[in-house]
């Protein structure tokens, strides 16, 4: 089983890096395609964590709906390859320093946490039945609120997409 974790983790990180900085292509469509690969390998990690329902939702909602929306808008606006523009060298160095520091703090704090070491007996199965029962018993109110959020988002999008914002 361990080999699958390393495979999916490496795929997630490499494809995630290629979304942000691809040395071969500056086209946003390439980034969107690598985002699909990141999402799919992440779904593999979810399966390894026995979160089967969330793995399916991840593939359906992210890879199936969100990325298609991205591609649709990118191609609708007909954005060509990102022309290479002059970057401020000092700013690039500073931001790499800041983010590297952030990553160092995160990873080293994970290694030192006592609570992380104490939690070492995974038994939970994230099946559809369990999540469905929780969704319609303890989480009914958030479920309804989220539907209102989606409705508000839909109304907002229609308003934003009208040609004249009057």
């Amino acid at each position: 089983m361990d080999i699958f974790f390393y495979l999916f983790a490496a795929l997630t990180l490499i494809c995630g890096l290629l979304v942000v900085a691809n040395p071969f292509s500056r086209n946003p469509v390439t980034s969107a395609m690598f985002l699909v690969l990141t999402i799919l390998s992440m779904a593999g990690l979810f399966v390894l964590l026995n979160a089967f329902f969330l793995a399916a939702v991840q593939v359906i909602v992210y890879a199936g709906a969100v990325i298609v929306l991205y591609l649709f808008v990118i191609m609708l606006l007909d954005l060509g390859a990102d022309e290479r523009r002059r970057l401020n060298k000092a700013m690039v160095g500073l931001s790499f320093l800041g983010v590297g520091l952030l990553a160092f703090v995160l990873v080293s704090s994970i290694g030192q946490s006592e609570a992380v070491g104490a939690l070492s007996s995974p038994r939970l199965q994230g099946t559809t039945e369990k999540l469905g029962k929780a969704l319609f018993s303890d989480y009914v109110l958030p479920f309804e609120v989220v539907s209102v959020v989606l409705l508000v988002a839909m109304v907002g999008i229609i308003l934003l997409s009208k040609r004249d914002l009057k």
Partner: peptide, 13 residues
């Protein structure tokens, strides 16, 4: 954590 840092790099750079 590493994936989060990659995302932050993207937003900043």
């Amino acid at each position: 954590a590493i994936l989060f840092s990659i995302g932050v790099v993207g937003v900043v750079m």
